[in-house]
Amino acid sequence: MKSAVVQLPGLNRDRDMIAALTKISGKAPVTVWQTETDIPDVDLIVIPGGFSYGDYLRCGAIAARMPVMQAIKAKAEKGVKVLGVCNGFQILVEAGLLPGALMRNASLKFVCREIKLEVVNAETDFTRAYSKGQIIRSPVAHHDGNYFADAETLKTIEGNGQVVFRYAEGTNPNGSMNDIAGVMNAGGNVLGMMPHPENLIEAAHGGSDGRGLFASALEVIAA
């Protein structure tokens, strides 16, 4: 499976993401700069975390209007998998590729710690390596991860199985509605999540709970 990592000014988790994808798939991802309008043929496009455009206006708002996002939208419409982590998630909601919005953490504090995630939907292209209800460890590091959607949208995404990850009981770090940590589109090929699975993929990280997500998305699950 071939992958691509999007690079924008202010994103700072791109190297972590490149390392994770390389280690898990055995192939280095191609990198795509924000002004590119043509994305090479890949199976997975990843928008990593960071602080694109300094989080000016709203987190992810300016990045979401860059030319590369039009190309990503076109790819997503064709069924190519798109993963947005942290700022990447914020960019995907700002671009309208995912429902809802991400607001300032309810505590108003930047949270940087480990939380527990519940795998709510294990039948997605991103979570096949896990089982439904499995609790996995994951780091979080963000200031604006407070997931919001209006009542109707919330009902729709809950009903469609679009809520992929929830903060496990008692670990919601940001006030997200319904403890939502990760959401996918109705088509099931675009996933956004605040936690950083790329930072928990090998023993040196202190665990490898995040590995399953990339193994699923890159289709390198050991049978």
């Binding site: 709203r58 700002e94 919005a101 209006d150």
Partner: peptide, 9 residues
């Protein structure tokens, strides 16, 4: 509509 406001919120 396109940038200054996020009309979701």
């Amino acid at each position: 509509e396109k940038l200054l406001a996020n009309t979701v919120i």
